[in-house]
């Protein structure tokens, strides 16, 4: 049980590390680059913006989940 808890905690720590990197990447690259374009879409092409918004949030969710799951499997830390 203790080993399992340790594995789970290690998995969460790794997840946090990965997410911290991704978040930093988002703040300094993606959001900065996308900000102006999305603002333009929101003002001039609302329907396109609505579609892009949903695709972006679903895309981010799938990528974040897949990347961490893959990495954790690779490390062998996932306890499920």
């Amino acid at each position: 049980m203790k080993a399992k808890t340790r594995r789970t905690l290690r998995a969460f720590a790794i997840e946090l590390g990965i997410y911290a990197l991704l978040v930093t990447g988002y703040f300094f690259l993606v959001l900065h680059l996308l900000g102006g374009w999305l603002y333009g879409l929101e003002v001039h092409h609302r329907y396109t913006y609505a579609g892009v918004a949903i695709l972006l949030i679903i895309g981010q969710a799938v990528v974040l989940e897949s990347v961490t799951t893959f990495l954790l499997r690779l490390i062998g830390g996932r306890s499920e």
Binding site: Y19, F27, R46, Y49, A53, I57, A61
Partner: peptide, 30 residues
């Protein structure tokens, strides 16, 4: 998704804020 679309065409969605929030929510949800 349906609600997001209808709100977005009414100008009620800041997707950049949602994307930043979601980076935290993704860990919490797991």
């Amino acid at each position: 998704s349906y609600g997001t679309f209808t709100h977005a065409i009414k100008g009620n969605v800041d997707i950049l804020i949602a994307l930043v929030m979601h980076t935290g929510a993704a860990i919490g949800a797991q």
